[in-house]
Amino acid sequence: MTPDRALLEVNALKKHFPIRGGLLGQVTAKVYAVDGVTFDIRRGETLSLVGESGCGKSTVGKAILRLFKLTDGEVYLDGERIDNMSAHKLRMVRKRVQVVFQDPFSSLNPRMKVRDILAEPLINFGMVHGRKDLTEKVEALMDKVRLPRDAINRFPHEFSGGQRQRIGIARALAPGADLIICDEAVSALDVSVKAQIINLLADLQDELGLALLFISHDLATVEHLTHRVAVMYLGKIVELADRRTLFAESHHPYTRALLSAVPVPDPTAKRQRIILKGDVPSPINPPSGCRFHTRCPFVFDRCRSEEPVLRPVGAGHLSACHLDNVPGGQVLPSAA
């Protein structure tokens, strides 16, 4: 790692969920939800984690939040290891890493007023002194997410989806976090509202120097706000690059297939769609070798037996494909 360390470093993160069965609830199988993921996020940077549903991207977010224990791997925040921290010390770290969830309806307690929802983190982290101070701080948060101040005495069901998502963002901002994990934060919203929320996140990032881990399945959305993109497939990162590189000269066949699926707002545009065959294999029993070999249009023998590692293929550009090792292999035969 570089001398000035990144804000968040995730090193070989693994999360396997046991499947229990039988009379005594013994472990009969494991879901390899996340199986060795390494990346970092710098201060004020947006890293997007994209992939199909079930590829483990949300699990990565929840693992960083320590909503469950990791199976293996390390997570560092500002050089301090947080994945094995005691519950007591962890509480203070939680102040710095917050989350915005996908569903604006289930992410706010229906029986709490907006004031109480926003007050919760402030009170937990001992950031308020007295009722007046609390009201002022809550109102300041409402200003930050562009919601009217007098809405603090309302219940979540009185707001629209976009407004609720703003409340969720305000809650994440409340403790003064350095990193906000946006777990599909705009996926459930209408297109126009989606744009507003993305702009709000971008504004807040400029204003507060926030780092964002933006988890999404939608490359078109990601393109507008990210600095770097990591593409995940079945619990592993297959390609990681800055936005321009990834969208212009991606290496991995899976990334290319994803990119070719992004709709282009031009009905006359001619483009070559790469349509993948079949479904994502089950993470309970992932394929041997390269996990993508069952669907890859360029599969060859080596892919079935040997797992490709994530290797640099350019400046800040990593890719995990055997074709990268073949001279001239990156220029993929038909997709180029």
Partner: peptide, 12 residues
């Protein structure tokens, strides 16, 4: 529920 997970993340 996400709001419970959010509460955990908020140090509750």
């Amino acid at each position: 529920q996400p709001y419970v997970e959010a509460a955990i993340a908020s140090g509750t």
